[in-house]
């Protein structure tokens, strides 16, 4: 088994599936000879050639539109958006077409594409390179919105996304692309979509998060443990469709919930989790739900960005507030 980073796990998954299934193709800006600006597609062009690892013109509309057309005609395109902030010209094709082909043709045409989106802040990048825009897509019927938080989940979830018969927006937390290595077997075993992963058992408070913030949530749980507080940590992994049952089961046990995400607070995906708790778990809760999120501002340029992103300190404080409340 190889020790790989999250981004190496992604490359491994794509290479595995491309070798197995000739309909799988990769397309985007700089994905070919250059291997992607983050090197996610490194080596794929040599292995599979320039038609299956396609450097497109510098136009996100082209990438999304071509991917939709290819997917409807029997290919499995993995399109790369290069950066989160460049996804907006793609939205028309994803929302109006990829997400709807199955419904509007009653299953005659489908759109099994994966849109890979390097996501989020914290890498000292220029403007428009640090967006947490997952809720742009979580309100769209027909899409799956997936975000891994470790090398093994990156491998297993990307395989599942490629094999899924419906369009998947696959957000990649670039802050943890190379944060640590993990043993990942290149065995072609996918992980299930549409389920949350409970990463740490606890009994006092539930920390619900996804993507890069999983790291801060686990560190917060460690810090809380030192104060005798037992925190359960849930990686949502598939935001849409949401596995609320796993969150609910946890909250039945802990009675407290802190939702952590990097995106702005208002109408961020945490609002959906909180609404579900209000609908289904009101009597299980012993304290108000807390949200630790990005602020309703634009993520600042990098001198201030770490003040914007949820920190271990903010998560610990929120968890303690839920304990103080009851």
């Amino acid at each position: 088994m190889a020790q790989v980073t999250l981004i190496e796990a992604l490359t491994m998954a794509m290479a595995h599936e491309m070798a197995k299934d000739p309909s799988v193709v990769v397309l985007g800006e700089d994905v070919g000879v250059n291997g992607g600006v983050f090197r996610a597609t490194v080596g794929l062009s040599d292995k599979f050639g320039p038609l299956r690892v396609l450097d497109t013109p510098l136009d996100e509309t082209t990438i999304a539109g071509i991917a939709v057309g290819m997917a409807a005609q029997g290919m499995k395109p993995i399109a790369e958006a290069q950066f989160d902030g460049f996804v907006y010209p793609m939205v028309d094709h994803i929302v109006c077409h990829a997400a709807r082909f199955r419904t509007r043709t009653r299953g005659r045409l489908t759109c099994p594409l994966v849109l890979r989106v390097p996501w989020g802040g914290g890498i000292r990048a220029p403007e428009h390179h640090s967006e947490a825009n997952e809720s742009t897509f979580t309100n769209v019927p027909g899409l799956r919105v997936v975000m891994p938080s470790s090398p093994s989940r990156a491998y297993g979830l990307l395989l599942a996304a490629i094999r899924d018969p419906d369009p998947v927006i696959f957000f990649e937390p670039k802050r943890i692309y190379r944060q640590y290595k993990e043993e990942v077997a290149d065995d072609g075993e996918a992980l299930p979509l549409d389920v949350c992963f409970v990463l740490r058992d606890g009994s006092d408070v539930t920390l619900v998060t996804w993507g890069a913030q999983v790291k801060e949530a686990l560190e917060a749980a460690d810090a809380l443990a030192k104060d005798g507080i037992s925190a359960e940590v849930i990686d949502v992994a598939t935001l849409k469709p949401l596995d609320f049952d796993t969150i609910h089961e946890s909250v039945k046990k802990t009675g407290r919930c802190v939702i952590v995400h990097e995106a702005p607070r208002t109408a961020g995906f945490g609002a959906e989790v909180a609404a579900r708790l209000a609908e289904h778990a009101m009597y299980d809760l012993v304290a108000p739900v807390e949200r630790v999120t990005g602020y309703d501002t634009h993520i600042p340029l990098f001198r201030l960005e770490m003040k914007y992103l949820p920190s271990v300190e903010r998560i610990v404080a929120a968890a303690k507030r839920t304990l103080a409340a009851s």
Binding site: T61, I66, A67, V68, G69, A72, Q73, G74, H97
Partner: peptide
């Protein structure tokens, strides 16, 4: 938008 879907089909 259909223009790009046709071009995508042609790419396939």
């Amino acid at each position: 938008t259909q223009c790009l879907h046709a071009a995508g089909a042609a790419m396939a």
